[in-house]
Design a protein around this nucleic acid. Structure first.
Lengths: 343, 343
DNA sequence: TTGTAAGCGTTATCAC
DNA sequence: GTGATAACGCTTACAA
């Protein structure tokens, strides 16, 4: 009854059992109308009995060179931002019957190069990458057998590629503008190191202050914090300053949380403006506003660009259209309680 | 200079350019010592010039039937629990030079069946699944061409399979025991519907109350809340009860957050015990304790079990060892402030 | 309606 | 050392 064979059944096995040629078995299983209903039924029965399943790898090899998979390369899947982005990519890919191969770079360019190389060797149809650094030569399609590449969250540097970005600059500008409008003259800035997004957010911050004629104080700018604890410390240091900030702008959620900790622990009511929403932010009872956006939408957008490129490649293999650059908007949410509960 | 060819170069192209046979090219690129150093160098140069990259799909087809990929099927990648689990799986897989194909089921069994089927057709080496339901026939290796399957977070039902679980029962029992030890007699329970984990946590909760001789009040048990908002409402309803709970036990983080909202909004100091840690929980200034664990470790554990099974399959294809069942421990973290800041 | 031959890109095997 | 041949599992093209 139960065939406990070690070998995976092939079309040949199915054909043999159904007493037809391999070719007829192939046609029957694909529902080719040129095969008689009777034969088709017999083949189907044989396939079911054997537990036959088409080998998509062999099929792809014969048909062309597409694996029906897209590669997704992120820096850290544990970060909700990237996992939500992955969700968006996966959703769009699934809608097109494609699978997503996810890999982590831990922000290491060397790792990224190896992963991308491996994905190309596996003949993925396309790759979506959150680039780890400014060295991106290995991401140029010319180096990847012309596999389309879409960059997400960070822009191409030194290469041309489609990309989907957030409006980091605009969001930061808007946030800072509001803080200035509220009368703040001394605003602390905290962000993580090295990321392009963080630099853009700092640029937005600076632009507004300069336009408002407010002098930049380097003691109030700190871009070294990767985690909540160090962010809290950095914020604490600023608050110890002789002329402490009356407000903070934080370039990512880790820094926002650290700042909230520092402010709250001192019982202060310093205004905080963060970037990246996080759960329970509204429960903190603070003067807290956040620049927010939809990472899943970013993933969907990047996937759409990739599939558009794939469609185009299929119809006109040689002439590549101009690169696309999508910028997703940010919005602002205010978590300041209507009436302060404490105090 | 830059070859702008549409066709991806093959081993044959490399051989032609290097004036050797395809076979010699193949050997040279693999570093076969039987090929002269001179030839090897020439082949390598030709490969580099062409931008040749080995087709791993074709290679796999010839070599055996392994794709060097493992499938990971989760219910919702946006949930930090699953994305961290995915990170653990990815880390272990990467350590063995394997790729992870991630798919979402959105808790739909039908979707799960299709995904698993597709993964099998793609000849993944193994599959790790967070099963969406109790109908798991499609996960039995016998139906999947003997592809090893490891279940994560939820146990096998009606099939035999390796699995990696959390100590849901033990964690809930410990939490409830502490609440009872603190003198609580009326404890509200809130959890999400239908998940096995939630049922286990409820079982742990019930066991302790029964052992303590405390009557169960159905008005204090609610297992319908999937999100924070409905959890807050459910908690609020319990607090409106004539004989309201003096403490809450929540079976997942959404419910914990909802309960915290309800309690905080009313300015109460009701004790809350949650399951699943979440960021900023320590900033809420509440009597809050949480049963926590390491989802990434769960992913690593499941991956280890899978690879162990794969190794075993390779050495002894026919005799399967007994199924393994790993249970990861939970621990408790207390976020209650040493001295209440408000009040 | 069904079967035969050939080949997708790679490698094991056996010749030279 | 290197090359010719066949085959992995599948499907297109052409025959029967």
């Amino acid at each position: 009854m139960a065939a406990s064979e070690a070998a995976v059944p092939t079309l040949r096995d199915v054909g043999a059992l159904a007493k037809v040629s391999t070719m007829t078995a192939s046609r029957a299983l694909r529902g080719d109308p040129k095969v008689s209903a009777q034969t088709t039924a017999r083949v189907r029965a044989a396939a079911a009995e054997l537990g036959y399943r088409r080998n998509e790898l062999a099929r792809g090899l014969r048909l062309g060179r597409t694996s029906g998979m897209v590669g997704l390369v992120v820096t850290n899947l544990a970060n909700p931002f990237y996992s939500q982005l992955a969700l968006g990519v996966e959703a769009v890919a699934a809608g097109r019957g494609m699978k997503v191969v996810v890999s982590n770079t831990a922000d290491r360019v060397e790792q990224e190069r190896e992963i991308v190389d491996d994905l190309a060797a596996r003949r993925v149809d396309g790759i979506i990458v959150v680039p780890a650094g400014a060295e991106q030569g290995h991401l140029a399609p010319a180096h990847l057998n012309d596999i389309p590449v879409v960059l997400a969250a960070r822009p191409p540097v030194g290469i041309t590629a489609d990309c989907a970005l957030l409006d980091d600059f605009g969001g930061a500008r808007e946030a800072t503008t509001r803080l200035v409008a509220d009368g703040h003259q001394r605003i602390g800035f905290l962000g993580p190191p090295a990321a392009w997004t963080s630099a853009e957010r700092l640029r937005g911050f600076r632009t507004v202050l300069e336009d408002a004629g407010i002098a930049l104080d380097n003691a109030l700018i700190s871009c070294e914090q990767r985690d909540i604890a160090t962010a809290e410390q950095a914020a604490s240091d600023m608050l110890d300053h002789a002329d402490p900030p009356t407000a903070f702008f934080c370039a990512n959620s880790r820094n926002t949380m650290g700042v909230c900790r520092a402010v709250k622990r001192r019982g202060l009511h310093t205004a905080v403006f963060g970037f990246d929403d996080f759960e329970m932010a509204d429960m903190l009872d603070m003067q807290l506003r956040i620049v927010t956006y939809d990472p899943e939408a970013l993933g969907r957008q990047a996937a759409e660009q990739l599939f558009h490129r794939l469609d185009e490649k299929r119809s006109a293999p040689l002439k590549g259209a101009a690169m696309t650059k999508a910028i997703l908007p940010t919005s602002i949410v205010d978590y300041t309680p209507a009436l302060p509960t404490a105090d």
